[in-house]
Design a protein around this nucleic acid. Sequence first.
DNA 1: ACCTGAACACCGTTCAAGT
DNA 2: ACCTGAACACCGTTCAAGT
Lengths: 233, 233
Amino acid sequence: MTGKTFSSVWLREPRKAASPGRTREEIVRAAVELLNEEGLSGLSMRKLGAKLSAGATSLYWYVANKDELLELVYDEVWGEMMVPDPDEVGWREAASVLAHSMRQVILGHPWSADLIGRLPALGPNAMHVASEMRRMFKQAGFTGLDTDYAIATLTAFIFGMTIPEIAWAAKSGAEQFDVEQMKSAVTQVAGRYPHMRESFEMTEMEDPRVVREVAFDFGLVSVLDGLERRLPT
Amino acid sequence: MTGKTFSSVWLREPRKAASPGRTREEIVRAAVELLNEEGLSGLSMRKLGAKLSAGATSLYWYVANKDELLELVYDEVWGEMMVPDPDEVGWREAASVLAHSMRQVILGHPWSADLIGRLPALGPNAMHVASEMRRMFKQAGFTGLDTDYAIATLTAFIFGMTIPEIAWAAKSGAEQFDVEQMKSAVTQVAGRYPHMRESFEMTEMEDPRVVREVAFDFGLVSVLDGLERRLPT
DNA sequence: ACCTGAACACCGTTCAAGT
DNA sequence: ACCTGAACACCGTTCAAGT
């Protein structure tokens, strides 16, 4: 009657840090490198083992399974996010800087997009960011559960906006891509939807990179305005 | 110098609809069943072939690869989303109903969460929803690119809020799960973060399902308020 | 304490061959 | 036009065995 147990790397004691052999840090560093170079599908236990010039399965001594390894590298991403002090710059500025920082970090590690929401974010870096966000919204004036709702709303916006950006960046970005072909493709598909055609025609003359930036700013201001209205007066 | 070409099922003519053999609809229906029963990792070309009592690789006649198959089932999900007529109920009500509907549809097909943002949503059902959303925001008074920004903001919120819900629902939901164990686990991890402990203690006495509902409503109202402020006066 | 290799049970995809 | 089977190049994970 106890059911499945919830498991996460962060709930187990790491192996004793004895002198010989590899360390978790080494493994995580190599994994991140592999991910940055080849993306999520480029990371296999075998390849990672090889990169560390170890046998294919020796990693299982440090980590229970691949998901645990991913939890580890996921937390590295959280470690890169900038959380300004709301006491110094005010909560709105702090939220804004944090949002842009989170977006940039994800865009810089496209493989992390697939991890968001799939993996629990219980690592120390994620905890630190969450904790600082809580401080930020309390400083703004939120109390009780509203504080958590505000956090959830802002992060939902940031992730929801950035995750799809990855797909487009991966496909259309880096100019190794036939822009004309894509345009005609999309136009073809939007053919029977006048509202959509209008939209595509408008964005066609703009640089897609700046369109996404502007869209993010537009949305961010909207979300922060909306949250501000929830503050008790 | 033409680069990689953008490809999608929706850009190719489907195979001639001859009498014998299977149809795309049959295949998609079987795939959706498999996904609902076993989740994304339960869908393999081999299993799907078997379910259709066909050879493992016969599907490749109907579909170029597995991603195309996923694009097909993904659009089925979009087909279930409800888009009320903004001319009848007003844009805010329409947006609100749509948002809740999108959330429910995703929660009802947890496997779709991993597809969002990874796959282009170019199918007819996705196009229809996007087109109606555009009509909705134009009716509200948005013009030009602002209309697209508003759409992006709202969908970012909906997806960003719902995708992580899946992970928790999959783990803690269905009561086949040891709630006590998870609580102590999370508390353990939050130990050194007073802000986090406070938050966990507060949500502990509430039903997590209603907490998520309330959070969604809170965020939705905030986002809609914020968007409303962007309207030209 | 740490690492190895072999083995198991899978994958997606290609392709020549069948009807 | 449609389907098959064999084959290729992979996966994650377990486990007995080595040092």
